[in-house]
Nucleic acid binder design. Structure first.
Lengths: 223, 223
DNA sequence: GAGGGCCAAACTGTATGCAATCTGATCGGA
DNA sequence: TCCGATCAGATTGCATACAGTTTGGCCCTC
């Protein structure tokens, strides 16, 4: 798991995960061990171990003697992932309101104010990067490794379906306004308010996704 | 993952996980591949794959070229697991209030009423079994596979520290009273109430654990 | 006596080989 | 023409072998 001096297995695990998340390996695709091995110039052994490791994350499904396939998710499953993420982020926001240190609160506020400028600037890419950092700050501010890890995993899994969201007209400034409500509640120590505000914020993302996905497909990564 | 026709790797994974959860493999213990292999009469390959699979669940830690050790958790980390579980259960209860079907609601009520009888009967073991089923019903009633799976994983990881809880005097009937508040809120569709009631309920379990753990140790399973 | 470097045993990481199972394609029968 | 059985190729599961790294101890030096 440590990134320093990674073994082949770990490099393969991240490579395969990336390929799935960026769409190179499409959902339902069969992951052949020998092909993957040749493709990366290694033997089957580290490939097998990498696949074994990825099963637990829900990115691929393995059935005994039938190999691994990229997890296929129905529209319903993807929606449930979005709901889960909304709930997790809301929970983290709630805990932030209760247990963020003064330093963390000041940093959160500073980060939010910087994003307000970015929003009015209108650069979707910079805002998107800052947005990821903002939500990560919420995860870590909850001071709970288990919750943070799960929330991060969910965010990664729904990531591919969120890419275009900030291109939608007005989404950028509206996102910032929603952040404002979240930050204010957290700084005020208002647990219930932070929960509600974050739930509202992330649920709107989900709505944006649904409006978007009706045009595209119904089959997507994640278990 | 399928339990039918399990491969050696899967059998080993569950065997090792069980050994960790029931304390046979103590936290911090180094899991030697050849020893495990000989112990189960297999080669190192399936052992390695099983260990690889268990890393993601947080039950063991692997460092490159240094092998696997049973995850050691500080008191702080265990407490954070309890907090995470409380939050997850509360979230599930919230979703139950919003999205349980009429049939599920009736079954939940029936289950709760049966437990009330068990509580007055005073049999801790039967009540404990029913309690697990009760909470599982909450997980599934949330209608969200990702949340349910995570909650179940957390419950398993904190399981070893909860065993004795129902032996504590009065805990059994108090637990049932807390369940009553949860069930009532869910049946009434009171999302915030269900959340608060469940959070209160599971947090009390945490308190019971802390009172208990002061007498025992500070090092326990889970990452 | 303490500290540091060197060496060997142990262990992990990876490759390869073999056996067992699955897949799907062909052939025979109804 | 359709359905089921059989067989070969492909693929997975597991064992074994070898190379590189880590670890612990011993010896030498200060």
């Amino acid at each position: 798991m440590s990134s320093e001096n990674p073994t082949l297995t770990e490099k393969l695990a991240t490579a395969i995960a990336d390929a799935i998340l960026d769409g190179t390996f499409e959902p339902g695709m069969h992951l052949d061990e020998v092909s993957l091995a040749q493709q990366h110039g290694v033997s089957r052994t580290p490939v097998r171990e990498a696949l074994r490791q990825l099963t637990t994350s829900g990115l691929i499904d393995m059935r005994p003697r039938r190999g691994a396939v990229v997890a296929k998710a129905t529209q319903e499953q993807v929606e449930s992932l979005f709901v889960a993420m909304a709930e997790m982020e809301a929970t983290c926001a709630r805990l932030c309101a209760l247990s963020m240190t003064p330093v963390e609160r000041r940093r959160l506020q500073a980060r939010h104010e910087a994003m307000t400028k970015l929003a009015s600037g209108g650069d979707p890419d910079s805002y998107s990067d800052a947005n990821v950092a903002f939500h990560s700050a919420i995860y870590s501010g909850a001071h709970n490794a288990a919750l943070a890890e799960f929330a991060l995993g969910l965010r990664r899994r729904v990531g591919p379906f969120r890419r275009a969201q900030f291109r939608m007209e007005g989404r950028l400034t509206r996102s910032n306004q929603e952040h404002d409500a979240v930050v204010r509640a957290i700084l005020a120590g208002d647990a219930a308010g932070a929960h509600a505000a974050m739930l509202h914020h992330v649920s709107l993302v989900e709505d944006a996704f649904e409006a978007f996905s009706y045009r595209t497909a119904g089959v997507l990564p994640a278990s």
